[in-house]
């Protein structure tokens, strides 16, 4: 017997009882031998403790980045990092305060945001309209889908020279490149979401007399919404990426302009500030999509409050 045992049960066999229909049921234990079983209390032994964490989850997740920055600062102070190639976090923060104080960062950020938002609006509209046309009609599919597939296969940034040839070197090619990237992301995901709406639901809807209009508004579009939001998330990522490429072309203002200026004047600290700004914008975009998902896809949660 192990010392783990906390209690001991004496098990004795039960006398065989004749069942109501007269047939005897065999006893569980055939012998009269007394068995000592090793018993433990499952509520105290080896059970997983169901306690709430003392520190909130988001704070716990912050620990990793904070530790990384601290390590970076320590390595900078000890001189392991060359300040000419890797400025200390404190230096980067000071620079950030400087470009914010002078209003320089805000001006460039505003120019870039305007481009991204306009490109996003145009691209989302085009992507959604094309996905609806291709997803809802056979003719639309024939006309649109193959073209979009070819477009999808070409790296979007390879279009930049063509866009410059078409639109010049002003705002238009920059917005067009962003819109193109967004258009393709939204189209690919929304189109496949429309085509993958559960056929058994569509069949059921038809048997209940759902007409074409209600089928589209009540079944297909809500069913494709999760796919559209996946497309939107990817579109936001490609929009920021496209922005960096677009702003390498003659940008009087914008984060890309600020970046190339910093490169020109060896302001590595400004480049680090801009990397931080890009990270913040990316995280903000993800948060926006998460917010939309929570608002629009409430039905996906397994349990509601009611």
């Amino acid at each position: 017997m192990t010392p783990l045992s906390t209690s001991r049960l004496r098990t004795t066999p039960v006398q065989a009882q004749p069942a109501s229909d007269g047939t005897a049921i065999a006893p569980v234990l055939a012998s009269t031998r007394v068995v000592d079983l090793d018993l433990v209390d499952p509520t105290t032994t080896g059970a997983v403790p169901a306690q709430r964490p003392a520190v909130p989850r988001w704070l716990q997740r912050l620990a990793g980045p904070v530790l990384l920055v601290l390590l970076w600062q320590v390595l900078s102070i000890t001189g392991l990092f060359d300040p000419r190639t890797t400025p200390a976090p404190v230096t980067v923060l000071n620079t950030a305060a400087g470009v914010l104080g002078s209003g320089e960062l805000q001006a460039h950020l505003q120019a870039s945001l305007a481009r991204v938002l306009l490109g996003l609006a145009i691209g989302t509209a085009l992507g959604t309209v094309c996905a609806l046309a291709a997803g809802l009609s056979r003719w639309g599919e024939n006309l649109i889908d193959a073209n979009m597939e070819v477009l999808h296969a070409v790296p979007k940034f390879a279009f930049l020279p063509v866009l410059i040839a078409w639109f010049g070197i002003g705002e238009e090619p920059k917005v067009a490149l962003i819109a193109l990237a967004v258009w393709i992301s939204i189209y690919i995901n929304t189109y496949s979401a429309i085509r993958n709406v559960d056929a058994s639901l569509v069949e059921a809807a038809r048997t209940f007399g759902v007409g074409r209009r209600e089928l589209i508004t009540s079944i297909i579009l809500p069913g494709a919404l999760p796919g559209f939001l996946v497309g939107l998330r990817l579109a936001l990522t490609s929009a920021w990426l496209a922005l960096i490429f677009a702003e390498t072309v003659n940008a009087p203002a914008g984060l890309g302009r600020m970046m190339s200026d910093a490169r020109e004047y060896f302001r590595i600290d400004v480049i680090f500030v801009l990397l931080g700004v890009y990270a913040g914008l990316g995280l903000l975009s993800l948060a926006l999509v998460r917010f939309l998902e929570a608002r629009l896809l409430g039905w996906r949660r397994a349990f509601d409050a009611a």
Binding site: S200, L201, E203, A204, A205, F208, G209, V210, G211, E214, S218, I219, P222, G223, L225, W299, R300
Partner: peptide, 18 residues
Amino acid sequence: EPRLMPWLSVLRNVTLGL
């Protein structure tokens, strides 16, 4: 299978197509 539309309320599922 029930084949209810998960994005429509229970009542809206019942009155589907009406």
